[in-house]
Design a protein around this nucleic acid. Sequence first.
DNA 1: CGAACGCTTGAATCCAGTCAACCCCCGTGG
DNA 2: CCACGGGGGTTGACTGGATTCAAGCGTTCG
Lengths: 260, 260
Amino acid sequence: MNEAHTPAIDALALGGRIVPGDLPCLLCQARSSAVCSVLGEERIACLNDFVVRRRIDAGGRLFDEGDPAAHYFVVTEGAMMAFKEAHDGRRQITGFLYAGDMLGLNHHQRYVYSAEALNDAVVCQYEIADLRELFRAYPEVEHWLLRHCSDELASAHDQMFLLGRKNAMEKIATFLWFQVHRTRLRSRNLTLLDLPMTRRDIADYLGLTVETVSRTITRMRLAGTIGTIGKHGIDILDIEDLRQRAGGGRALRPATARRV
Amino acid sequence: MNEAHTPAIDALALGGRIVPGDLPCLLCQARSSAVCSVLGEERIACLNDFVVRRRIDAGGRLFDEGDPAAHYFVVTEGAMMAFKEAHDGRRQITGFLYAGDMLGLNHHQRYVYSAEALNDAVVCQYEIADLRELFRAYPEVEHWLLRHCSDELASAHDQMFLLGRKNAMEKIATFLWFQVHRTRLRSRNLTLLDLPMTRRDIADYLGLTVETVSRTITRMRLAGTIGTIGKHGIDILDIEDLRQRAGGGRALRPATARRV
DNA sequence: CGAACGCTTGAATCCAGTCAACCCCCGTGG
DNA sequence: CCACGGGGGTTGACTGGATTCAAGCGTTCG
């Protein structure tokens, strides 16, 4: 069971549902950043008993706010978003989630937000009921969750400052600034962002309307700060100007912000 | 030492800093709702080795965003607030905290927000370095923290919806609605709120200006929804109307929202 | 007593929202 | 093959809700 020579195909062919063996976990995009990163190579196989992989098509719902909360998820491929919706259609996206990010953790009976895929995505699904057992067997899993949860809380506070106190230009610039850091464009000496979300998604994330997002991006393009390529491409032409527009120093801490 | 007949004064008079004995912990306002609630009466004494009590005068700072994070705090008396401030004076209050709420938990080197007392307050102070030891000795402490942290995250998401998508009237009404539930006015058949914060604090919590807060409260008074008594008193005259103004059903879940 | 602060109110301003038109792209189906 | 429809995006004109600026009131405090 702990031998790593089992071919991936063996694990994947076990039945109707796709169960990851050692290899899928070892090769997983989220391996270095998700919960399972606390388990060494020799213990990663133990997840077989806990985890199911699920594929969600672009635009598909993973769960709805108010649904009975039976699972905890980790995004392993693609991008998802978490959001709240009111009766009248108003929507607030609370986070965009990428490989390694988690979804659905809470200690209530029901999910407190909805989750949808931005593009074709894959998630690891844990039974909430199994988590307690997992915590007992591997306390470092719980350490990791606590750490990650407090990180998300810190990001949420940054977002609250943005929503409550920044104007449209600062909001868009901050958003792009975090995207640049999330994708490590700078360290890779690249300038091209490929955003998986629509203008409407950006608006609903920043507390704006589509029109304002569009106008603001146009203003930044005319000013030479960025270039636009198609619907999803953003070329960062003047990163320092972007930083200035985002609001400069405080309340702009990409190092600690995991969720953008 | 475990004998409960020791007068509180003995424990409090031990020296320059105030060290709680069993009795202060047992009589603590936060006893039933804070981290220490997971420790039974027989084990509460063990906190002596970990905890120091600190008093903060109204308006006093507990710590600043960016300060080296050495402590974790639990509010035991009074009210505090957590906030972020920009160079230009813009401020976003991220939470008001009362007996049982926690402050300063994070896994970075520095505090990610500032904390200030709204009125004379008392906090329990834990060394961050001691927390790991505490987790090992009492895993339920870590369970509690994770649970509480995910609750705070849920509240933060509600607040993000409020900041990004609600108008002034809905913001104020939601704020008062949560205050009503926090103080359990309804179950006690009372209608009088005594808010510890100023209009400016409310404005900085809701992403508004003082003037808008004042005007909106006036409008609710003229409409007969509430009455105002002095600077801090609010009389809830029509709770159903308040609920309607707050936005009705979704995104209004006082049961799970601990921080308002 | 005067200064400071918190709160309220009024008038004017402005930033973002609303409403509407139009473009482009893409998938669909005649 | 092309006509069509729909969705996403952009732009313009106008509106409006919240901010800004300013003044005044009551209370507190040195």
